[in-house]
């Protein structure tokens, strides 16, 4: 089995187990406020870190290129409550357009 298939199947199994555990575990285990708060913060931290890594790194180096203005356009679209698809397309179009104009 290739490494990619291993990653796909292991992550699928882990995520299904988590979903099922929520339905099966005694409710008070997960109703503990500290657990709920920590899970919510972990989600925020992971997503924020992924934004940073996808925007400003390339192969283990910090890089500032057309992705940065594209992310700014996405943030404006989100502030204006644009739907998800519009946000993603605007960011892609911004980066693609800037690269046509010669930006890295």
């Amino acid at each position: 089995m290739t490494a990619l298939w291993l990653a796909v199947l292991l992550s699928s199994a882990a995520c299904f187990a988590l979903k099922l555990a929520g339905h099966l575990l005694p409710r008070h285990w997960l109703a503990e406020p500290r657990v709920a708060r920590t899970a919510a913060l972990v989600t925020v931290a992971l997503l924020a870190a992924l934004v940073a890594v996808q925007t400003a790194t390339d192969g283990g180096r910090l890089v500032l290129d057309a992705r940065v203005p594209a992310l700014a356009v996405a943030a404006v679209a989100l502030a204006l409550r644009a739907p998800f698809v519009v946000v993603v397309v605007l960011a892609a179009a911004t980066a693609a357009g800037l690269r046509v104009l010669g930006m890295a």
């Binding site: 882990a14 988590l18 972990v42």
Partner: peptide, 26 residues
């Protein structure tokens, strides 16, 4: 270019909130 372990751990940590949703839904 991340390793399989790091990729699976990231996916699972993000999936942890679904356990809390299950506990709300049950």
């Amino acid at each position: 270019g991340g390793a399989v372990g790091a990729a699976v751990a990231s996916a699972a940590l993000l999936g942890a909130r679904n356990a809390l949703y299950g506990a709300q839904l049950a």
